[in-house]
């Protein structure tokens, strides 16, 4: 979720147009809508223990990924395999965890009919193992 907030911040700061009345009101509207979403998200978070756990992990992964990227830009990407492996592991784990989040939150089975949360966790573990096996091979 941290990643999402960051992107929105970029959007809100982006329009470089002259600060006419229209754009100002647009900006205000955006910041308002974002704050509503954010509040709603906070509410969700406080209600659900699982969600907090998963989102903390996601935030950690994003931080790790960003850190690696900055390191790569500053120091250089010499063992390119290693950088790519490290970076991909965060991205890969991120999307897998988001998938898990989507699947576990869908308790009623409205979207993922046949996939129970237990099944989702099993799939998640399998896919993560595959991911890290490949990465282990990739890093050399």
């Amino acid at each position: 979720m941290a990643k999402k907030d960051k992107k929105v911040a970029v959007v809100a700061a982006a329009p470089p147009l002259a600060p006419t009345k229209a754009t100002k009101s647009l900006l205000a509207e955006f910041s308002q809508s974002i704050s509503t979403s954010y509040k709603m998200y906070q509410k969700d978070l406080s209600e659900n223990q699982k969600l907090r756990l998963i989102d903390a992990f996601l935030a950690f992964l994003v931080a790790l990924g960003v850190l690696q990227f900055i390191f790569c830009v500053l120091v250089g990407n010499f063992p390119f395999n290693a950088f790519l492996g490290g970076f991909c592991s965060t991205v890969g784990q991120f999307v897998l965890t988001v998938s898990l989040r989507l699947q576990t939150l869908d308790v009623k089975g409205e979207i993922f009919g046949s996939i129970t949360p237990e099944r989702a966790l099993g799939d998640y573990i399998l896919a993560s193992l595959m991911l890290h096996f490949v990465l282990f091979h990739f890093i050399n």
Binding site: L84, C88, V91, G92, V95, L96, V98, S99, L102, Q103, D106, I111, F112, A127, M130, L131, V134, L135, H137, F138
Partner: peptide
């Protein structure tokens, strides 16, 4: 768009791409 597309595509892409680079 629904969550199914997200889960299936992102999983396929990240695993498939990494594997193909082997």
């Amino acid at each position: 768009f629904d969550y199914k597309i997200y889960t299936s595509y992102t999983t396929w892409y990240i695993l498939g791409t990494l594997m193909s680079m082997q």
